[in-house]
Nucleic acid binder design. Structure first.
Length: 311
DNA sequence: GTGTGTCAAGCAGAG
DNA sequence: CTCTGCTTGACACAC
């Protein structure tokens, strides 16, 4: 099991999302921004290793306008060595990374232009994982998309679009249940149709479900992941911010709720991403709790354990 | 320097 | 009809 957090490290003074306005585009600015963003990503991963946080979601903005036609800079070849070195480090330290392309990626839009731009964005983000030399356990995580007043038609379009995706994207794509439109059950239908694994979000499931208790929902989602090809189930973990709008993520992890969630796992292997506002601070607390309950070995031990002993 | 409106991109629901 | 939230933060211009 690994614990992680998304995109931003608040303890370090660098960003992986340096960018600029489209109106001020130049190849030089792309080069400068990517160089800085990759250097910061390296620092974050090193920080994570030091703190035994072995799961990380990389932000979408590593390459400004990475899927936009304006971007003519050959960043893939120019930064090939840097990407490769990051991938080597990730594999050597047994880290797992992912991307979560943002809300503009909608595979089931009735607008063919939106679908095309969405695919280009997936190709861009997937190609970074390819450049790192990572296998298909490094994922691209998206939601099912819009409803357009016709759930059945929308699901059909999603499936039709899936079949047109490049193999490199298909191998990494996973679909996450959301909190308003597409439940775990809807995502399972996509899995049954095309085999896409279902990334499970516990908080979204609390907001939108079909009555499945948490332990059952977790096992059902886990069964959609092929162990060798996809790796262990990925989970987005969060909880409701007290007194706030329904669906608002809590500012800092509530330990009692997290402990209950770990019990709901009932021994299931999974990598858990803490979608909590204070980022690595909560991830670190989660890590300590998991060590305490014996679900995670301490950082100092993990390197020396080697292959698991068989008694 | 600091403040602040705006930034490539979509959708749904609230007000 | 317009605004907000969604993983949000950072740019860029005005003062």
């Amino acid at each position: 099991m690994r614990i992680g957090y998304p995109c931003v490290n608040e303890s370090l003074d660098c960003t992986t999302a340096s960018t600029f306005r489209l109106a001020s585009y130049s190849d030089e600015r792309v080069e400068k921004a990517v160089a800085g963003n990759l250097a910061c990503l390296r620092r974050i991963l090193e920080y994570n290793v030091q703190h035994n946080l072995r799961f990380f979601r990389i932000g979408s903005g590593i390459v400004p306008f990475g899927s936009h036609p304006v971007n003519t800079f050959p960043w893939q070849t120019h930064f090939a060595a840097e990407f490769r070195a990051l991938g080597d480090y990730i594999r050597a330290e047994n880290l797992r990374v992912s991307f979560h392309p943002d809300q503009f990626v909608v595979l089931n839009s009735p607008d063919a232009g939106i679908v095309q731009r969405s695919i280009q964005e997936l190709v861009y983000q997937g190609s970074m994982l390819d450049l790192m030399g990572l296998d298909s356990t490094a994922k691209l995580q998206i939601h099912a998309g819009g409803l357009y007043g016709d759930r059945e038609g929308a699901l059909k379009r999603w499936i039709a679009t899936y079949h047109t995706l490049p193999e490199a994207v298909k191998a990494r794509l996973v679909v996450e249940n959301d909190d308003r439109l597409y439940s775990l059950q809807d995502c399972l239908r996509l899995h049954e149709a095309v085999g896409v694994p279902v990334l499970f979000d516990n908080f979204h499931h609390e907001c939108l479900n079909n009555g499945e208790p948490m332990p059952l929902a977790l096992r059902t989602a886990a069964a959609t992941w092929h162990p060798e090809r996809d790796g262990p189930l990925m989970i987005d973990y969060s909880s409701q911010a007290p007194g706030e709008r329904r669906g608002k993520h809590v500012a800092s992890m509530e330990e009692a709720l997290f402990r209950r969630f770990l019990e709901d796992l009932r021994g299931l292997d999974a990598d858990i991403m803490l979608e909590i506002k204070d980022k690595e601070a909560s991830a670190h607390r989660a890590c300590l709790i998991m060590q305490e309950v014996g679900m995670l070995v301490a950082a100092a031990q993990s390197a020396s354990l080697g292959s698991p002993a068989v008694s």
